[in-house]
Design a protein around this nucleic acid. Structure first.
Lengths: 142, 142
DNA sequence: CGAATGTCAGTGGAACTGAGATCC
DNA sequence: CGGATCTCAGTTCCACTGACATTC
């Protein structure tokens, strides 16, 4: 029988390990400025696509709409986003990134980008692109 | 400005998403027979490399020494592994896979393999190998 | 009415920490 | 003695669920 290392080539295991390190790298990078990954995700989603309702924002950014509440409370508390009732549908809140929020996003952007670089440090530029392509395919809705 | 989708091409995000789906797929596959991913990891590590102490097993399989205790309790409880004090060093326990454990591993193996297949269903065989190669490089000790 | 929205409380799993007991 | 090993208790974080009030 071959001395196969079942664990070390298992895709699900490799994904878990890589994701764990990536998560940590990002968290560590953002921790210095008191931000967490959802702060970046929410700000990026808002700046890239404009104001939305909370449920729409949850869908865009991937956060759960329950957990979004706490994140928005933090971000509005420091003035990075504004949350106002939608006059057209009073069930909804319209969430908008403020100018301070856009500046904050730019700041976080460099930190996140540096973290990505640290995560993929062992890969060439072409390999990084390929990895992103493969992962995008894997993650794509069936 | 380009309408760039910062989030959708972010490696750390893609890794997190893919890992989450993979984790779920494996958990779901194993849940049918009452196993969890650590059961497979521990059995595979034991069968592939032979008996070890708990700390060695923890290192091999990636589980924490603290959490390993509970997993071993479950596996010894149903007779898949044996845990005996090491006569040469009585601080240690020697953990061994029983014959029933080897049969159990074979059973879990097919379930786990099927889960991997479901995870990577959108990729060709060559792409899967490439993904494993890239992830292995990313995860490799620096 | 049913359906959607925002909010809150809570669950379960996993990674991780700290401390004790035993033994080298 | 210092250091390693096993064990237990507990913390923190995150994805996720369920329920509720309000509004469409």
């Amino acid at each position: 029988v071959e001395g196969a290392d079942r664990l070390h080539a298992l895709p699900s295991r490799l994904l878990g390990l890589a994701a764990l390190r990536a998560e940590r790298e990002v968290a560590e990078a953002l921790a210095g400025t008191g931000a967490r990954k959802w702060h970046y995700a929410v700000l990026a989603a808002l700046v890239d696509h404009g104001p939305v309702s909370q449920s729409g924002l949850a869908e865009r950014s991937g956060i759960y709409r329950s957990d979004l509440v706490a994140v928005l409370a933090e971000l509005t508390g420091v003035g990075y986003v504004a949350r106002e009732p939608d006059p057209a549908d009073r069930r909804r809140n319209v969430v908008t990134a403020t100018e301070a929020g856009e500046r904050r996003l730019a700041e976080l952007e460099t930190l996140v980008a540096a973290a990505q670089d640290r995560i993929l440090t062992a890969l060439t530029t072409a390999q990084r692109a390929q990895l992103v392509r493969l992962l995008t395919t894997v993650v794509a809705p069936r």
